[in-house]
Design a protein around this nucleic acid. Structure first.
Lengths: 121, 121
DNA sequence: CCGAATCCGTAAAGATACTG
DNA sequence: CAGTATCTTTACGGATTCGG
C-alpha cells in the first residue's frame, strides 16, 4: 500500500500515515544531539541562569562527570544551541548561555520537563 | 548565600535559584529513561499508531537496530510507559501501545518534536 | 515468517587524577 | 577554575540465529 498524503512530511519514503500525528522523518539530526545523555538537562540548567559557569553546571547536575559535561558543551556549542564566552582572568572564567535556537529549544521542552517532574517518585 | 525559596522544588539541596525557572532536581529518573537514544522516537512512533507491531516500528525508524529496539521496548515497558500484548499465533504477533503515562509523555514532547522538525534543514 | 536473543566489535559515558 | 588524560564500564550497532 502506498502511503497517504502527509501534511507534515515531504519525504517520499515516509512510512507514517497521514492525519494529525507528528511525522518523525525530519526529526533525526536534532534529536540525536538532544537525546544524548545530559543534553536536555544541560540546556535546562543554562536556561535557568541566563549565564552560568562550568563549575556551577557541575554542581547543579550533581552526577555528571567533567568529561561528559565538557563533551556535551562542545557539541551543543557546535550545534549552535549554546554560546561560550571566555574571560582572560586568573582564575579563568567561562560563561555559557543559550543562543536564540537554544532558547527556543528550552521553551519547547518545558512541558516535557514538567511532566518528568511530576512523574518522578 | 543560602538559596532563595523555590516554588518548584522542596529539595533542601537544590542549588537552583528561585523564580520562574524549571527546577531540575526531581527530573533525574524519568529523563534518564527518556533521553536514551531512540526512546523519544519510539514513544512518538507508537503514539502515532495506537497499536503497532515490532516490525512496523523497525520500518518507521529506519536506522534502528533490532537489538536496540528490543532493549528500549523492554525498558519503556518496565517503566510503565508502553504496554506489550502478545497473541498466540503463527507467525507470532506482538502489539505495542502507550499506557496513560506514555500518552502524557507523548503529549508533553510534541512541542519538542515540532521544534526539532522545523529546526532540521 | 515474526519477534526477538545472542554474540561481538565499536562508540559513548563514568571515575579519578591531574594541569595551564 | 575549567577543563584534559587515562582508564574502566556501559551503551549501541550489525549480523546471525532461533523458537513458536
Amino acid at each position: 500500500m502506498k502511503r497517504e498524503n502527509n501534511a507534515h512530511c515531504k519525504n517520499v519514503n515516509c512510512t507514517q500515515k497521514g492525519g494529525n500525528e507528528v511525522c518523525l522523518c525530519p526529526v533525526g539530526n536534532v534529536i540525536n544531539v538532544v537525546s544524548k545523555k545530559w543534553a536536555l538537562l544541560i540546556i535546562a540548567t543554562i536556561g535557568n541562569n541566563e549565564k552560568i559557569r562550568y563549575t556551577k553546571i557541575m554542581k547543579n547536575l550533581a552526577d555528571i562527570s567533567p568529561k561528559t559535561l565538557a563533551d556535551r558543551l562542545k557539541e551543543l556549542e557546535n550545534f549552535g544551541l549554546i554560546e561560550r564566552e571566555t574571560f582572560d582572568e586568573i582564575p579563568p572564567r567561562v560563561e555559557y548561555s543559550l543562543t536564540q535556537d537554544g532558547i527556543e529549544l528550552r521553551d519547547s521542552m518545558i512541558p516535557l520537563m514538567e511532566w518528568a517532574s511530576k512523574k518522578k517518585k
